[in-house]
Design a binder for these strands. Structure first.
Lengths: 152, 152
DNA sequence: TATAATCCTGACCATGACAGTCGGAATTCT
DNA sequence: AGAATTCCGACTGTCATGGTCAGGATTATA
C-alpha cells in the first residue's frame, strides 16, 4: 500500500508545470534543476504524462511541457493513474474486470471491502487538485521565509 | 496502490482460522486444500502471522494454527500490516518517521495529502474484522446454494 | 518405539517493477 | 549552422513478489 516514488516524482513535476501554466512551456531541464531530480528519468515520466494526455510538448529551443488544462482541473488521482495505472487494491475491483474471471467470485467475501477501499482512495486522491498543491506550497513558503538554497 | 496477493492469501488463511476458532488448531494443509493455495507458500505466511502475534501454533500430529484472540478482535488492517508492513503511501507519513529526514519537508505541500490518504486507508481496513468477513461469506453461500465442488 | 503428521527454517529461484542511465535521432528557434 | 529541446529505445542494478525445496524439530498415536 504505497505510491511509487515514480508517481511522486511525476506529481512534483506536474506541480512545476502548474506553476508555469500560462507562461509558455517549461523544460524538464528546469524542472530537474528546481526539484533536484534526475533529468533523464524525468524525460521518461514526461513522455508518459504526455501520452496520458495531461501535458503537451513543444520541441526545439524554447520548448518544454505545459498542462493541457488548468491546474484546477487536474487531480492528483489523474497524475497517479497515468503513471501507476488504475488504483486497484486487487484485480477484481479494477475498472476493466470481467465478471467471472476470478473463480472465487461466488464465495468471495472480501470483494466488498476492496471496493470500499478503492473508492476511499479514489476519493481522497481526486479531491486534491494541482492548483491546491501549488497554493499550499506558496502558503508554506510564505510562512517560513526562504532559507535560500540552504541544505544544498 | 495495491495489496499484494501475499497479503490477500494471508487474509484468506486468516478467515479459515477464524472459522475454525474454538475447535482446536487448523493445519495449513487443510487451508491449502480448501483455499487451493500452495502449501509451501502458506507455511511461510503462517510463520509470519505467528511472529506478528496474530496466531499461535501447535506442532505434531494434530497440530496447526489458531487465532490468538477472537475474530471480532482482528481487523483486516492487522493482517495486512503484519504481512506487508505499515500502510504508508510515502515514507514521510510512516509511524517511525523522524522529522527532518526528508530534505523537502519545509516546502512539501503534498505531505498533508499523503497523511489524509493513509488515514483513509487505515480507517477502511480497520473497520472490517475477520468475524465480519466470515459472516458475509456464510451469507453469500446461503444465498447461492453450493455448486458442490463445481469449477474444480 | 517407530512412524506419520505437523510446524519451522533457511536457501534457492524466476519474474517483473522500480529507478535510473545512456546514446542518439528528430525538431525548432536564433 | 548550431544550440536547445523533446523523443525513443536499449540497457542496467537492485529489490519485492510469489513461489519451491530439503531437511530438521516436535508431538500424537498405533
Amino acid at each position: 500500500m504505497r505510491v511509487s516514488s515514480k508517481a511522486h516524482y511525476g506529481l512534483r513535476m506536474m506541480t512545476e508545470f502548474a506553476k508555469a501554466y500560462g507562461s509558455g512551456p517549461l523544460s524538464i531541464a528546469e524542472v530537474a534543476r528546481v526539484e533536484h531530480l534526475p533529468l533523464a528519468y524525468l524525460e521518461q515520466l514526461a513522455s508518459q504524462l504526455r501520452r496520458g494526455g495531461l501535458v503537451e510538448s513543444t520541441r526545439g529551443v524554447h520548448g518544454g511541457y505545459a498542462l493541457t488544462r488548468p491546474a484546477e482541473q487536474i487531480s492528483v488521482l489523474d497524475v497517479v493513474t497515468v503513471i501507476e495505472g488504475e488504483v486497484a487494491p486487487v484485480e477484481c475491483v479494477a475498472h476493466g474486470y470481467v465478471t467471472g474471471a476470478c473463480q472465487r467470485e461466488g464465495e468471495c467475501a472480501s470483494r466488498a471491502l476492496w471496493m470500499r477501499l478503492k473508492q476511499s482512495i479514489d476519493a481522497v486522491l481526486s479531491q486534491t487538485t494541482l492548483a491546491e498543491l501549488v497554493a499550499d506550497q506558496s502558503l508554506i513558503e510564505a510562512m517560513a521565509p526562504a532559507p535560500s538554497e540552504a541544505g544544498l
